[in-house]
Amino acid sequence: MTSQVMTLSKAINAGLRQAMTDDDRVILMGEDIGKLGGVYRITEGLQDSFGERRVMDTPLAESAILGTAVGLAYAGFRPVCEIQFDGFIYPAFDQIVSQVARMHARTAGAVTMPITIRVPFGGGIGAAEHHSDSPEAYFMHASGLRVVSVSNPQDAYTVIQEAIASNDPVLFFEPKRRYHVKGDVELESSGQGRNAMDTARVVSEGRDVTIVSYGGLVQVAVEAAQVASTEGVSVEVIDLRSLAPIDFEAVANSVRKTGRVVIVHEAAESGGLGAEIAAGITERCFYSLNHAPVRVTGFDIPFPPAKLEKYHLPDLDRVLDGLDRALDRPNSLSGLEIS
């Protein structure tokens, strides 16, 4: 087995390269992904290796990237579409939710849509407007899609390949703030089977409270767990990986043990993943709960200017405050009547 230290961005690149080598029907499409190698260099070197027809620089038209991917899937290809930035996905929304998501059901299974949609997402990099969004909840709500996110190089390498191999369409959310984080990557990871994409991962075990997160904030959760442990609190951290469907078995198993849960994400609170998780946990382990599920999320605001994002995005202190709320310890809302 070959193990290599690489960044998350390089791990996606390596995963794409492996998927393209394994299956010549895999083609990449997107803006600036060829000669430039993508604005984040995720596709660097791939056009040199596989040519302009398998790594296509497309005109600037997101609906067309997804719409032509539908036609390519009809023709037996496995398109991997790059949306350059999270906030640029909305022009493609109709093709994604009306066409990509529904074609298999519409045609009673005759036409499959093995399309992977790669989306660099989230804030924390001081970007301009439309470059820091977390649009995952929109797509969780669209039946027919699978939605995943990764937080570390190993999962990036494995899950991108699983997403491409899936016969269902997959939204693959890449946390921009984690692109340059390094980690060990087991390059022959086929032994992991098809499970990484579908299952949550227990990042660190604990007894007192569970943090559920994904993507860019898993690391913040891990740091919060480390700080809490110095205060004698044992925190279990779960990285969802699959946002749709959610691996509620893993989440509920943890919450049955801890009785307390904090859900952490960058996206706005209302109608977000935290709401779905809180409801799902409450349905499944109501009698194990010692406190209502707690959400620590971005506010219900348009993504703010760069100088304000540190107040908007959940950070270590806000997650610790969330833990305090879940643990009935003194916290920012102590004494406030629930309203």
């Binding site: 036609g71 009809y74 037996g76 066409q99 519409r106």
Partner: peptide, 20 residues
């Protein structure tokens, strides 16, 4: 293909199929 109800959406599918 299955007839399309969203106006014009199928023109992209045809173009993608042609690329294939």
């Amino acid at each position: 293909a299955t007839p399309q109800i969203i106006i014009g959406a199928q023109t992209l599918h045809a173009t993608g199929y042609a690329l294939g």
